[in-house]
Design a protein around this nucleic acid. Sequence first.
DNA 1: CGGAGCGTTGATTAACTTCAAGGGCTGTGG
DNA 2: CCACAGCCCTTGAAGTTAATCAACGCTCCG
Lengths: 209, 209
Amino acid sequence: MLEGIKTYRTVAVGQTILRRGDPLNYVASVVAGVATLEKSMSDGRTQMVGLLFPSDFIGRPGRREIDFDVIAATDVTLCCFDRVAFERLIGTTPHLAERLLEMALDELDAAREWMVLLGRKTAREKIATFVHMLLRRQRLEPAVEAGSVVVLPLTREAIARYIGLTLETVSRQLSMMKKEDILRFEDNRRFEVIDVAALRRATGDMGEN
Amino acid sequence: MLEGIKTYRTVAVGQTILRRGDPLNYVASVVAGVATLEKSMSDGRTQMVGLLFPSDFIGRPGRREIDFDVIAATDVTLCCFDRVAFERLIGTTPHLAERLLEMALDELDAAREWMVLLGRKTAREKIATFVHMLLRRQRLEPAVEAGSVVVLPLTREAIARYIGLTLETVSRQLSMMKKEDILRFEDNRRFEVIDVAALRRATGDMGEN
DNA sequence: CGGAGCGTTGATTAACTTCAAGGGCTGTGG
DNA sequence: CCACAGCCCTTGAAGTTAATCAACGCTCCG
């Protein structure tokens, strides 16, 4: 589907893919790399409101603008479609509209799950939840061999913006889990989850699913 | 629209309208009153993830279950539609699918805005933002005379669950704003916003819209 | 009158932020 | 090849905010 109207675009780490208020001339899907959705307050405080992995979608059918920044957390490759052409396609493909609704509801569920984390979890639970989520997502990717090795796609500071902490607290909590032999670091950005059960317990989500 | 398949239902304050995991046999719209969407952790910590006013919609087209509780914060009147009949209607009414997508995106925007509040705002900013939102919403309602009188549809404890604080902190912050002559209370649940500009400033959102 | 539910306020504590210093890695230019 | 700058990360100490613990007031209602 969508053949003939797609183009590829690559963005270097740290670059802004879309800025708040930008007109939304195309929709896109992430092919490789990781991008973040961030909302900033006027004094600079920033909260990440979404994290995009390969296969995730950027764009809001029916909306002309976005009200957050989209930033490349690593080098990112995008597959872009002209927005107008895409919307024409929606009109003629009922199945696509359903699919978009489903995606929006998934994002909504994820956002609400994150509201619990931001509003109610401790620093330790936040970190554990974040690492556990990465572990689950990266296990789904074919490229990465199985096992429990996790690659952090974000700096400590970006993690902090995602989970509503400061970079120092992120660093300290990761150090704690290393000292407790839950994680074993290969380098700053790579570690193995030695004790998955303990990690799971530390998320605060026990008794669910 | 939807004539012939709707029924009304009233729910008393405090009652659970839908429980997490319940099958979603109908969709509904709020006619009167206020309902909350809440997610609870296994140890009882609870975060509200949405607040429904009259005209707001309950239900997730295409989903069989909900993963939060829906609770009546005041006495609530609902207008319910059979889910299966409703979904049949979607299939035959393309415009309706679009409308649902738009509603889902609005909810998503609201959730992300709230993520900033939960992750980055101070207690004072949280309260100010909450009150300011109530002021805006209640000004839209025809029933309530204009002016700046706000009615709290929630207890202090429920407000705390909404903005990620404890009930004591909510109480203290409201008392502060009263002492600073930003709010004048008629009783526990009713007050006038005397200084709207100061309230706006206290939200932390200056420099936007 | 007594009890339950809701709200306020004060005192103390705990968690996280802020401030500060320094370590380690990487890339670049002399 | 080495020296240095820049970035990211870690760790310690001090400071602040909000949570917790506790007591009490008010109103409604049986």
